[in-house]
Each structure stands twice: as C-alpha cells, then as structure tokens.
Design a binder for these strands. Structure first.
Length: 486
RNA sequence: GCCCCGUUAGCUCAAUUGGCAGAGCAGCUGACUCUUAAUCAGCGGGUUUUAGGUUCGAGUCCUAAACGGGGCACCA
C-alpha cells in the first residue's frame, strides 16, 4: 500500500478508513467513569499474575508512545494528570481490537479497561482487556520526549504545546489557581466582584491608545476599554464599598515580552481606605497566591530569586530618586542637568523628566518586592494629592526586579480638581496624548459624592509570570496575539 | 514605525571557501509475548519561507517581501 510516496496525513487517513472497515467508529463517543491517570498510578501495583489479578481500571488518553514486540504491544497514553504504559496482548483482546490496535498512530485518543499492575521490569502498566477507539488524529504530531523547540510553532499550535511541553499546561493550571486565590481572598474580605462594560464611549482610566470599533444600530464609535477604573468608581458612588473586577483590557500598543494587546487586570476599590490600605492588601494578596502554589515564599525568577515574605520594603519615590539620581526631585535645575547626562529630551515638563530619570536610572536597581510611593502629582490625574504637599500624589507602584506589578492610589474624589486635571493637558504633550480624557459623566458621578477610597490595579499576567518563573507574557497567555498566518 | 538576527523533511537540527541537500526521531514493509528515547533488516520522504538578481554553478552572495525572535519607540 505504501510503495508510493505518501503524505503522512494520507497514511493516517488510510488507517482511518481501515478502522471504519472493521466496523469501529474512528471518532468515538461517550466513555464514562474513567479514572485520572495520576490517580491510577497511586494504586497498589503488583507484578501481573493471572491467578491474582490487580485492581480493574478504566482510563482514556492520548497515545504518546507506541512500541511493538510481536504479539505484544506497549503504548503510553497521556492525560493531564500523567502518563501510563499500556500492555496489549494478542490473546487478551478480540481479533477486531487487535487489528484496531495495529492501526493506532501517535496522537490518537483511546480508552481502555484492564488490570493495573507492574511489568517484569517494574513499569506501572495497565494490562488491557478491552480497547475502545476514541478519536483518530489525522495530522502527525511533533516528535515526543524532546519537547518542542520553535517558539512560533508552539504559539501557533498551542494545543500541541500543551501536550508536549509540560510547563505550558502546568502554567495554565497555576494561572487558574492564582486567580482563584485572589477571588477567594477578596471575597472573604467582603469585596463584591462585578462585571462592567468592555465597550466604552470614552476610553478612560489610563493613558493608552484604544482599539476602536463601531456600533451599527446606534451609529456611534466605541472603544474597547483600556482600564476598569471609571465604572468601578461609579460603583463606589453607588454604595458598593468594596468592589473588584478581574477582566480583560485592551491597549493598541506594541507587543513585547511584557506586553500583549489584551491582558487581564485586577482592579479593586475600597471606600474609606487610602493607598496605605492598598499596600497592606497587595502584600496579603500576593503572599496568599505564593502560598497557594505551595513552592515556598522564596521563588526563582530567571537567574534571580525573589523573596515574597511580608512585610515588603516600602520606599519613598523622592528618597529613591535622591539616592540613585543624586539630586532632589523638586530641584528643577539639578533634574535638568541629570536628564542631560542621561540624554533625555530637553524641553519636557519637569515631572516628565523626573519620571523618565526614575525609569531609566532607578527602576533597574529595584530588586524588590518594594512599594515605591508618593509620586510626582502631575503624572497622576486620578490620584489625590498630599494635603501637606500638593506636588505629591498618594500613589504607589510595586516593583519586583524592575517589573511593575501593581499600581495604587488614594483615589481623587474631589470633582472640581478632577475636572481640572482632566482638562489640563500634561505640559508638552499634544491633546491625543493627554493622560486622561474628559469624561463629564464620570465627573458628574463624583459630584454626587464618591467616598474617599483606596484603589489598586494588578496586572494579572505579570503576576503569573513572576509566580511561575516565566520570562515572557506569551507563555502565561494561552493564545497571545500573533499576526495571522496562512 | 525603526534596528539587528532567524526561517532547510511531519518534528529537532546538520551542510567547510559558492561545488552531488544530510542525520536522528516520526512514517512505510518485515521479524520479535516484558518493551520503555525498544531492538534488528529494508524502503520512502525536499519548490532549502516567497519573488527576483549575480554566477558555469546558490541552502550559502545581493535586493525585496512574508512570518517569527530580540531590542528601540509607544506603554501616566
């Protein structure tokens, strides 16, 4: 049959026809009451002995190895809890089952009933008494065992990556565990989880280019949200005193190991709190996540190590600036001089230069975890100013190894100041780059009285990167954005 | 948007100075009732990402494009 050149997929299609010809459905069906392979492997295993059969088991999974030995056939099947070897013997199966077994390819899905035990060489094995074919794989799978090398191939075939790169599936499970831990933690503190719109008439709450779309019936432009902030604050006005949302936000910007155009944010707001409230909460939340993963509080991150042991360091922005840049952040002449040394563009507003110096000079030195607090006010249009120093906003960011993990404010609840900062362009920037867009409806909400509050945002993807020792955001998002490819 | 690098069999990778496009795994045929990265014997498998160019001759050199990676810009 194969004396002609045949595509690998054609060979599989031919086997599919042969399975059908044996009266077996190659696409399978309901197969109940299987045990996870990981559970089966925990059962007591004795060498096979027909006089003393081992425990009966039923399993299903994907065939990842196939070895023939004459009238014996060894397979391994995989499910997300593990792998196990199957032993098929010609005299234990029906003629049809044995013929079907000869037509199995790597990647096919099968179900088995049999006896659990050990082979002579000690391998945990199911000796198969009944073989149920569940699904034919018509495409060849990448080779097993050595893993997959090409990142593009892995990303474009994530389902294969999940099967053949164990870390990929492990990270997907850890991500779920982290998010579930966050929900449980906040729920127990009395926070109410809500869902707010992803389609916004004004893309506010952050400074980022939005994705644009259009609603046909209303004939209006709409934007995918770039932040969760403004709807959640309206809920504070409405009386939900502790509120949070975990949701997707969209920013029409560059892609990098730390940026995906759509990513998952946690934002939460607590009435009558402030940014110090949020520091304590952030610390508790992250430690709860670390503990949930069960790998201890000292975790590897790339070549480095992170110690997530509370209390985290807390450092004033101005002090760090003074320490690493070498001058007072409020000293305009000195800041300009320092900026010149760093090659920063002159003519920018003072606070912009301060922030650029901070990002260029200070950030990389922050090992963390460290709460950096008290930011230059003009960079923070949604943040309350310090009563004692209006140049300073009550904001913190949490840094770990130069990565921003969390961002929090004492929320600005003064509608007059809010309207001013919305109208005020950040000096030196054109209108479309303004940090915040005028949202009159939001200001109106504030005018009805928003309680003083603390607010917090955490980039979930980056948190998962940190806690799962992953160096690229593409590997904590199952389907990161790629350019479509034939 | 800019700069640098990569793309060879289903998968992972070789190919010297520009000189016959190869290996392992996977696949196919056969042997084998305890294998396990099985083994043994044999057989197939390629528009070297694409389109041009230079050359007697291009996987290799040149130009452009596609896709990807890293960096920059953007990302308060």
């Amino acid at each position: 049959m194969a004396d002609e050149t045949q595509d690998l997929a054609e060979v599989r299609t031919e086997k599919l026809r042969q399975i059908e010809a044996l009266g077996v459905d190659p696409w399978g069906g309901r197969f109940d009451d299987t045990a996870p392979i990981g559970t089966i492997r925990q059962l007591p295993a004795d060498p096979f002995d027909d006089a003393k059969p081992g425990p009966p088991v039923r399993a299903a999974g994907r065939v990842v190895r196939y070895r023939t030995a004459g009238k014996l056939l060894f397979l391994e099947i995989w499910d997300q809890t593990g792998r196990i070897q199957l032993m098929l013997r010609v005299n234990k199966l029906t003629e049809t089952e044995w013929k079907v077994a000869q037509l199995i390819d790597l990647g096919d899905l099968i179900g088995v009933d049999g006896e659990f035990g050990k082979t002579r060489t000690g391998e945990l094995t199911i000796q198969v008494e009944k073989l149920t074919f569940l699904t034919k794989s018509l495409e060849p799978h990448p080779k097993d065992v050595f893993g997959m090398g090409d990142l593009e191939y892995r990303l474009r075939h994530r389902y294969l990556d999940m099967i053949y790169t164990p870390d990929t599936l492990r990270r997907a499970h850890q991500r779920v565990k982290i998010i579930r831990t966050i929900r449980t933690y906040l729920d127990e503190l009395g926070y109410l989880e809500v869902e707010t719109p992803t389609l916004h008439a004004i893309a506010g709450g952050a400074a980022a280019r939005p994705f644009e779309t259009h609603h046909n019936a209303l004939d209006i432009p709409l934007f995918l949200r770039i932040a969760l902030e403004l709807p959640l604050k309206r809920l504070l006005v409405g009386g939900i005193e502790k509120v949070y949302e975990i949701g997707r936000v969209f920013r029409n910007e560059g892609i990098s190991p730390r940026h995906n155009p759509e990513f998952t944010m946690l934002e939460l707001y607590q009435a009558y709190g402030d940014y110090h409230t949020m520091m304590d909460l952030t610390e508790g939340l992250i430690v709860a996540c670390v503990d949930a993963l069960g790998g201890g509080r000292v975790i590897p991150f790339g070549e480095k190590t992170v110690t997530l042991e509370p209390p985290f360091q807390r450092a004033k922005y101005a002090d760090l600036f003074k320490e690493h840049v070498g001058c007072d952040m409020h000293d305009e002449a000195a800041v300009r001089a320092a900026a010149r040394v760093e090659g920063e563009f002159q003519g920018k507003a003072h606070d912009v230069l301060v922030q650029e110096l901070f990002e260029d000079v200070v950030e990389e030195k922050l090992v963390g975890p460290v709460f950096v607090y008290d930011y230059p006010a003009s960079l923070c249009p949604l943040t309350k100013r310090k009563r004692s120093d209006p140049r300073i906003a009550e904001r913190f960011e949490l840094y770990v190894h130069g990565m921003e993990l969390a961002n929090a404010y004492t929320e600005l609840n003064d509608p007059v100041t809010q309207e001013q900062t919305f109208r005020q362009q950040l000096a030196g920037l054109p209108a479309e780059e303004s940090m915040a867009k005028m949202d009159e409806d939001f200001v109106r909400a504030l005018r009805h009285g928003m309680p003083p509050a603390g607010g917090l945002g955490i980039g979930i993807d980056r948190l998962v990167m940190l806690l799962t020792n992953t160096q690229t955001i593409r590997d904590v998002i199952l389907f990161p954005l790629l350019r479509p490819h034939g």
